[in-house]
């Protein structure tokens, strides 16, 4: 009763939540439930569903396209996490160590400006750079090491995946730099002074003082990096469609092709369910084992 009375007393508060939850129920809660349900059926999106139990899942792990895509995904994910966590942090540390606030602002601005160029345009520009015949990458390689150094890049079975790793060089994500910089600027002057008195400078200070104190930011980037990385496939869809062979196939791309080229909705949804379970697992690991920033104080 008391709960009901409190609910009634504070009913106006729920009005604020209505727009959000109305949208979420239709466009965010219903679709994943519908997808999980569909993953147990064979369905083309139009006619009758046929219940197949776990068949879609067992079939997936015998599908060489999907099995290949997992390997590719893991390689790209590890690479992107390593690059995406470290390089922005190093750049943020460099900017943090500048004594002139004008210079510091200039670099913050410079690294954030490329954000205005759509990611897809960046992908297309990198395809120009990696063009096997007239691309800048091969021009430079030929100038250094002769014609033998030229690479087929996106067209070669062995180089296609590497091409996706090279894209975006030198990988300074402006948003990440600013988020790290926020962490560094949050470190109190007393701590920095104490570190200096104790003789901790340069790399020692970075490892012993700065790094532990920006763990909150590192953890955020790690979670976002894993969640985004597990479902990345736009560049592959646009540039290679998974080829040559299955060299750049991604689980998300298998899902896309199954759903929108072959109309196999249940099979496509099974891939979504697996991705979701993997994200759930990583989130659990993250919450259990990665310490939060507040625990350091």
């Amino acid at each position: 009763m008391a709960v009901l009375r409190e609910f009634w007393h504070k009913k106006h508060l729920y009005l604020f939540l209505i727009p959000t939850f109305a949208l979420l129920i239709v466009f965010s809660y219903y679709p994943p439930l519908f997808a999980i349900y569909n993953s147990f059926f064979q369905w083309n999106g139009f006619s009758e569903r046929i219940f197949v139990g776990l068949n879609n899942f067992t079939q997936l792990f015998q599908d060489s396209r999907f099995v290949n895509s997992i390997g590719n995904l893991l390689i790209l994910l590890c690479w992107n996490l390593a690059i995406g966590l470290s390089i922005p942090l190093i750049v943020a540390e460099l900017i943090f160590n500048l004594r002139s606030s004008k210079q510091s602002y200039f670099y913050r601005l410079m690294f954030i400006v490329p954000m205005v160029v759509p990611g897809l345009v960046g992908t297309f520009l990198w395809r120009f750079i990696l063009d096997p015949n007239v691309g800048l990458a091969n021009l430079l390689l030929e100038a250094i090491g002769g014609a033998g150094w030229r690479q087929p890049w996106l067209g070669g079975t062995k180089t296609a995946l590497i091409s996706f790793m090279i894209m975006g060089f030198p990988w300074v994500g402006g948003t990440s730099v600013l988020i790290y910089l926020a962490g560094l600027q949050g470190i109190s002057n007393e701590i920095l002074d104490a570190a200096q008195i104790d003789g901790a400078t340069g790399v020692t200070r970075f490892l012993r003082v700065d790094l532990p104190l920006v763990m909150g930011q590192v953890k955020l980037m790690l979670i976002l990096g894993i969640i985004n990385g597990l479902q990345a496939y736009t560049s592959q869809l646009v540039l290679t469609n998974g080829g040559p062979g299955y060299a750049t196939m991604m689980p998300g791309l298998v899902m896309y092709q199954e759903a929108f080229q072959y109309n196999r909705i249940g099979y496509a949804n099974a891939i979504g369910v697996i991705t979701f379970l993997v994200i759930l697992f990583f989130t659990y690991l993250n919450m259990k084992y990665v310490r939060s920033s507040s625990e350091y104080y």
Binding site: T20, L24, V26, F27, S28, Y29, Y30, P31, P32, F34, A35, I36, N38, G45, I227, L230, Q231, Y233, P251, G252, M255, Y256, A259, I265, A268, N269, I271, G272, V273, T275, F276, I279, L280, T283
Partner: peptide, 20 residues
Amino acid sequence: MVIALMMIPGVLTLVPQFLL
């Protein structure tokens, strides 16, 4: 319930959202 949605991947929701 709101925060948990951040764990739900687009790979899972693209198709059912399209059907919707």
